[in-house]
Amino acid sequence: MSKPRIKVPKKAAAGDVISIKTLVNHAMESGQRKDKAGNVIPRKILNKFACEFNGNPVFSTDIDAAISSNPFIQFSARVAESGTFKFTWTDDDGSVIEAEKPIEVS
């Protein structure tokens, strides 16, 4: 599993609303396509994404098959203190991709 690419500003002022961009490599097989033999390729997508800051939920999504491969998600967060953002993607097969990014708040 490749490493997700995440952009979080390194520094912010307390109370600022920051923008976070995430991109993770995943085929997001929709379950609509067929292989050469005409068999349907089973669905295998990341169906959930969640972002926490110091253990508190910030933002989450329920993802369906209509999201493009290598899903890109951009959202915002309000930061009051220094801490760590934790990102979690959940696969259809139950496996989980995790990543963390620190931020310094002054």
Binding site: F59, I67, F72, Q74, F75, A77, R78
Partner: peptide, 23 residues
């Protein structure tokens, strides 16, 4: 299938904005 994505926000989101790429 009509469903694409559902974003869930919290007050800690600061702004209710989000972007992604869809099929």
């Amino acid at each position: 299938s009509p469903k694409v994505i559902t974003f869930h926000f919290t007050p800690a989101s600061g702004q209710a904005v989000a972007s992604t790429r869809m099929r």
